[in-house]
Simulated scan of single mutants.
Amino acid sequence: MTLQYQGEQYGNKTTFTIRIIGNNLSKSSSNYQIDLLVGDKKLPTFTTEIHQSLSNCLKEVYLFRKHNGIQFDEATEKIVSLFVPYDEVLYNYNKYALFRA
């Protein structure tokens, strides 16, 4: 699932893209990886590449945004790829971690 947001980094307007990659590596758990792109450039956001939950991935993106002057406009959210409806439901349930005050 790929989402785009309009926003700014240090006052410069840009587009932010979040790619959520869900991998079912075992029958007992799912693993998630998120890529954060500013324009076309991938940012090195993660200390670990794979997380056990989507919530943990989004928390890490939030902390990265906070320390790097990145602001998303939540109202500009746009899904730009085909997705499984379950992924959208799971993302909507967990995206509070991305938009904390």
Rank of each mutant, 00 (worst) to 15 (best):
H51F: 14
S81V: 04
T2F: 05
D87T: 08
D35K: 10
T48W: 04
I79R: 13
H51Q: 15
Q4V: 08
G69C: 06
V89I: 14
S29N: 12
L63H: 10
E74N: 11
F99I: 01
Q6V: 02
K66S: 08
P44N: 11
T48P: 04
E88F: 10
Q4G: 02
S81Y: 00
F64N: 00
I50W: 13
Y5P: 03
T14W: 00
F83E: 07
T2D: 12
I20C: 06
L3P: 00
Y62S: 15
K27P: 08
N31V: 12
A75R: 14
I18R: 03
S81C: 03
N31L: 10
E88D: 12
T17L: 03
R100L: 13
S53K: 13
I50V: 13
P85L: 08
S28M: 13
N12Y: 08
T14Q: 06
L37N: 02
A101C: 10
R19M: 10
N31K: 15
Q4R: 11
N24A: 14
K59W: 06
M1G: 09
F46D: 07
C57T: 05
Q4Y: 04
A75M: 08
I21K: 15
K78Q: 15
K27T: 15
Q71T: 14
D73G: 05
G39W: 00
N94A: 13
N31P: 02
K27G: 08
Y96S: 13
G7K: 02
N92L: 14
K41R: 13
L98K: 05
L54C: 07
N23G: 12
R100F: 06
R65M: 15
Y96D: 13
G11Y: 06
N68F: 04
K95V: 11
E8R: 07
Y86P: 06
F64K: 04
K66W: 05
I21E: 12
R65H: 07
E88P: 05
G39Y: 00
Y10W: 12
Q71G: 02
L63Y: 12
R19S: 12
F72S: 01
E8M: 00
G11S: 07
N12S: 11
R19Y: 05
S55C: 08
Y32C: 06
F99Y: 14
Q52C: 09
K41S: 09
Y91D: 04
T76W: 04
F72M: 05
F64R: 02
I79C: 10
R65D: 00
N24F: 09
Y32V: 03
L3N: 00
K27C: 07
V38D: 01
D35S: 09
Y5A: 00
I20M: 08
N94G: 02
K78R: 15
T48E: 11
T76E: 01
I21M: 09
I18A: 01
I70A: 03
L37Q: 02
D73W: 05
F64S: 00
Y93R: 13
G69R: 06
I18K: 03
I79K: 07
S30R: 13
A75W: 04
Q4W: 01
P44H: 09
T48I: 10
T45W: 05
Y5Q: 04
Y93S: 09
